[in-house]
Write a protein that binds this DNA or RNA. Structure first.
Length: 410
RNA sequence: GGAGGGGUGGGUGAGUGGUUAAAGCCACCAGACUGUAAAUCUGGCGUCCGGAAGGGCUUCGCAGGUUCGAAUCCUGCCCCCUCCA
């Protein structure tokens, strides 16, 4: 346990708070492998960059010889995340849970070292729980304590519903810490309450309380709210390289710094330098470097370079991408009655609009271009004509907005 | 157990019998500008037919009913919230 990132880097960079920092540093000094707890809910198997901030911490600590305990929350998944809008979701089948758990791990181990990870299921201990155990567990805490939690407090105050099972969620998560005898638990700052309940419960049950490692919330691609799947402002790990690169390029400039800090290994001194040169160099250059770095982490360098080339070609120079999905347009074969097909129908059928009405709106707004396959000439289509008036060639490309293309083929 | 309030389009939230496919705001889409950033301006934002003008159909928790006409009135049901006990 010698090589690896330095202590300062591990405990400060991309970390919001460690409760307690001092005790954690002391634990590291004990020279024994620590048990690092990380749980996930198999009803939501998608990992995005927001989760990666914490996963990188796990990996760094693994490099120092510590052990990750990954808990599959097959019981907590049935309760649902206490986020207010969650209406009771249908319970997942056993098969779905297994599929989701596999999919989660496939992504998880893109960052975390599999060899130093132990995967356990909540049902290993909750499967044997009795009502007496549940009562015993709930009896250790009070409603007042749980209303301390920000989310509960808010909803209570605003007279919005709080399901009783939602109170169970932190309790189960806390008991996990006891079950796996965790030394440190990881989560975003929004998880603070749950992690602290675990810390407290361990103390009550005669274990050494875990340390809580809290990561900052990564702001999403909208530049306003924390990255989350339900807000649609996320970059998924399983995103194709081009999309991943593109989404990072669309980030507001202010996020370049935090993303470099939380999601890359670019040294802090270098980041400070980037900061200083701000104003002299077009920020797009920094952002490209960021997009390349992150894309390469989850794919590989070749794929990242290709994604960058794609970006430069399609977005910056407004060229045509290499791979354009093809759509077999029947009227090109000349078998569509006397007048041919309407443009709006073609756009809809080719998947460039979600309804014919939307396709018409796009046409009216000048969002549709037809690009000749041979010459590359683009023509803006602003009338919802029939194909006989359109002069459409085989292999012509239909373009919607700036970056959605479909090639029309016979 | 009792009394009261409420469920509207992706979100918020107006609207209490026709002028309402349903205000405003947010989100989103498109155009201009541009660095696929931000800001700004413009247009759009249920669906189907029509080149267009325009027309049809579907939508206000669910199911019925009253009416020429219902998001708006009536009945039943489901769900949420508050207060009292």
């Amino acid at each position: 346990m010698t090589s690896g990132p330095n202590l300062e880097e591990i405990t400060r960079r991309g970390v919001q708070e460690i409760i307690s920092h001092e005790q954690f540093v002391r634990m590291l000094g004990e020279g024994k492998p620590l048990r690092l707890k990380m749980g996930f809910d198999p009803s939501r198997p998608d990992i995005h960059l927001g989760h990666v901030v914490g996963l990188r911490k796990l990996r760094q600590l693994q490099q120092l010889g510590h052990q990750v305990i990954l808990i599959v929350g097959d019981w907590t998944a049935q309760i649902g995340d206490p986020s207010g809008q969650t209406v009771t979701r249908p319970a997942l089948t056993h098969e779905e849970v297994i599929t989701n758990a596999e999919s989660y791990q496939r992504q998880f181990f893109k960052v975390v070292d599999r060899d130093r990870t132990q995967v356990v299921w909540q049902s290993e201990w909750f499967g044997k729980f009795t009502l007496a155990d549940v009562i015993g567990l709930t009896g250790r805490f009070t409603v007042a304590q749980f209303l301390e939690r920000d989310d509960f407090a808010k909803r209570f105050q605003e007279h919005r519903p709080i399901a009783i099972t939602e109170f169970l969620y932190p309790l189960l998560q806390a008991y996990d810490s006891v079950a796996v005898e965790s030394d440190v638990e990881f989560g975003g700052t929004d998880q603070m309450f749950n992690l602290l309940v675990g810390r407290e419960l361990q103390g009550m049950m005669g274990q050494r309380p875990q340390q809580c490692f809290l990561m900052p919330m990564l702001v999403g691609t909208d530049g306003a709210q924390k990255m989350s799947k339900s807000l649609g402002n996320y970059v998924a790990l399983e995103e194709p390289p081009e999309d991943m690169y593109g989404k990072i390029m669309s980030l507001p400039d202010e996020l370049i710094g935090p993303y470099f800090e939380y999601l890359t290994d670019v040294p802090m001194e270098e980041l400070a330098e980037l900061e200083r040169s701000n104003g002299e160099i077009n920020p797009i250059e920094f952002k490209k470097r960021l997009a390349l770095d992150i894309t390469a982490q989850f794919h590989d360098l070749a794929a990242a370079n290709a994604a960058q080339a794609h970006f430069e070609n399609v977005v910056q120079r407004r060229g045509l991408p290499e791979d354009i999905p093809e759509f077999t347009e029947p009227s090109l074969a000349g078998s569509q009655g006397e007048q041919g097909r309407r443009l709006s129908n073609i756009i809809y059928d080719a998947g460039l609009a979600s309804s014919v009405s939307e396709a018409k709106r796009l046409i009216n707004q000048g969002a549709i271009e037809l690009i000749d396959a041979a010459t590359g000439d683009a023509r803006r289509l602003t009338r919802d004509d029939r194909t006989d008036a359109l002069d459409m060639q085989d292999r012509a490309v239909l373009k919607r907005g700036n970056r959605r293309f479909v090639r029309l083929v016979k």
